[in-house]
């Protein structure tokens, strides 16, 4: 087989994978939209997913958010004070942390914790015939396993991103007060002067899309496991890589659309 044949073959496999994922996504969305009438969403799975992905990651996210807020102020102060533009620190905090880093970093934490665990869990369920068991009860694995997880991760990521924003602002204020003793109220007034509703909403809108795709990719890769336990880690690696790529691509798309609309 020559080189061009190999490229062609890879391309076909790639397109097939995209089509397969597209079909999976369409099924999940269709089932999700018909949930209200069918009430198939499993509250227990949903709540557990939000608890695991959201609440249990809260401290990790908090520490990172506090640190990032502080670091931005620290670095920003060093650079901006050299030309008397320390006022721009608020702009920096809004543009860098709230608009970009909050959703991206939270998404990366969720990929590392929950994306991997969802993929491993579903992969192992597939190997141990638990998916078949659900089907034998007439329970759709998409309804029972995927939708609740996707919805759970979306809710958790959305929530974590809000906490990230709030805590990074606190971190920012805490470190600002090292350089200039500034009351929290004044700090917030300056910050809100630079912060628009759009900035805040764009960060949570991103988190919803990130959550959706991270969970969807992780579930999809988990369910792609066929029989062998050795497939599980391989699929998990793929889930992580594809989730990170998806997050970056979606981030660029949403940011582009945001600036296009404005």
């Amino acid at each position: 087989m020559n080189y061009i044949d190999r490229i062609g073959e890879r391309l076909i496999v790639f397109i097939e994978n995209i089509k397969s994922f597209g079909r999976f996504m369409a099924t999940v969305v269709r089932r999700f939209l018909s949930l209200y009438s069918e009430k198939k969403i499993n509250a227990d799975v949903l709540v557990r997913q939000v608890y695991f992905t959201g609440f249990e990651a809260f401290w990790l996210v908090s520490i990172i958010a506090f640190g990032i807020g502080a670091l931005i102020i620290l670095q920003g102060n060093i650079i901006l004070s050299t030309f008397g533009q320390t006022k721009l620190m608020y702009v920096l905090l809004v543009t860098v942390v709230i608009r970009e880093l909050s959703s991206i970093l939270t998404a990366l934490i969720v990929i590392a914790r929950s994306g991997t665990s969802i993929c491993t869990e579903l992969g192992n369920m597939k190997v141990s015939h638990e998916i078949d068991l659900l089907q034998s009860y007439g329970i759709s694995p998409i309804n029972y396993l995927v939708i609740s997880r996707v919805f759970g991760v979306v809710v958790a990521l959305f929530t974590l991103t809000i906490y990230f924003n709030i805590i990074s602002i606190l971190g920012g204020w805490f470190f600002t007060s090292f350089f200039y003793p500034i009351p929290f109220k004044d700090f917030m007034m300056h910050l809100i002067g630079e912060l628009s509703v759009g900035d805040l909403l764009i960060s949570v809108i991103k988190s919803v899309f990130f959550g959706f795709f991270i969970a969807l990719i992780s579930c999809y890769q988990g369910l792609q496991v066929v029989v062998a336990r050795t497939e599980v880690p391989q699929r998990t690696i793929r889930a992580v890589v594809q989730s990170i790529l998806a997050v970056i691509v979606i981030d660029i798309l949403i940011t582009y659309i945001y600036y296009l609309v404005l």
Binding site: M125, H129, E130, D132, L133, L134
Partner: peptide, 10 residues
């Protein structure tokens, strides 16, 4: 339906 090996949701 009963599976060959006992299967339960883990």
């Amino acid at each position: 339906y009963v599976f060959q090996e006992g299967v339960l949701i883990s």
